[in-house]
């Protein structure tokens, strides 16, 4: 059992850690956290259930069960990771297991925004570079240091220029990824917008 993970707060610029590689395209959020674990009113205990069914099927051989990955924090995936359900429980479960950043070929849209909203940067790399990392991880430990400002990842043997959406990069560096207070700063604009919308007049207070 891992020690309790504290969710990130404030500016996020550098992260480093051991990589854990999970091979497969179209890994959906039902697999990351099966629906039965959604019966909860907080996210605190989700970490231990991450990939529960896949792990049971592989009987200890799933990357999230291997001893050498126990303290890994950078997840390496393939394409369309996190497709399917909008459940934020999926990135929450990954985060509470210990994942701080994800590098993959592509991410599903809702999963990506959920990761941004809870402070997990998702970077993309071309398929070839990912295969290179995943092959490396087969034999050796890969300890990556990520510099978000330069979108660069370095290690003893491998270096990569990472891609990340510019808006996400800026939000992590400024701390605005935790969006509520930034959004609230525009309270006047929000109220003006509310009044201007044509349909508010004919739908407001109907219920």
């Amino acid at each position: 059992m891992k020690s309790k993970i504290t969710p990130p707060i404030g500016k996020i610029s550098n992260m480093s850690g051991r990589c854990i590689s999970l091979i497969g395209n179209d890994i959906d959020t039902d697999r990351i956290i099966p629906a039965r674990f959604l019966k909860c009113v907080n996210f605190d205990s989700l970490g231990e259930s991450v990939f529960e069914d896949d792990r049971k099927t592989l009987k200890g051989k799933h990357p999230f069960d291997l001893e050498e990955n126990k303290n890994a924090s950078i997840l390496i995936v393939n394409s369309n990771f996190g497709c399917g359900s909008s459940r934020e429980h999926a990135p929450q479960a990954l985060m509470r297991w210990g994942i701080k950043a994800i590098i993959g070929e592509s991410f599903a849209d809702i999963f990506y925004s959920n990761c941004i909203a809870i402070g997990i940067p998702c970077f993309t790399l071309p398929k070839k570079s990912l295969e290179e990392i995943q092959n490396y991880c087969n034999n050796k430990f890969l300890f990556l240091e990520i510099d978000l400002k330069k979108s660069f990842a370095k290690s003893k043997d491998l270096n990569f220029n990472l891609e990340i959406k510019e808006s996400s990069r800026k939000m992590f560096l400024s701390g605005e990824w935790d969006a509520t207070s930034t959004l609230l700063e525009n309270e006047n604009l929000i109220e003006n917008k509310f009044i201007q919308l044509p349909y508010i007049k004919f739908t407001n207070n109907l219920l």
Binding site: S113, N114, M171, I190
Partner: peptide, 21 residues
């Protein structure tokens, strides 16, 4: 119309807006 995660549900409740590309 689109799906959002729980943090964005929080943002809509608190501000009636979300940050999105």
């Amino acid at each position: 119309a689109f799906g959002i995660g729980t943090s964005q549900v929080r943002d809509v409740l608190a501000t009636q807006t979300i940050a999105m590309n």
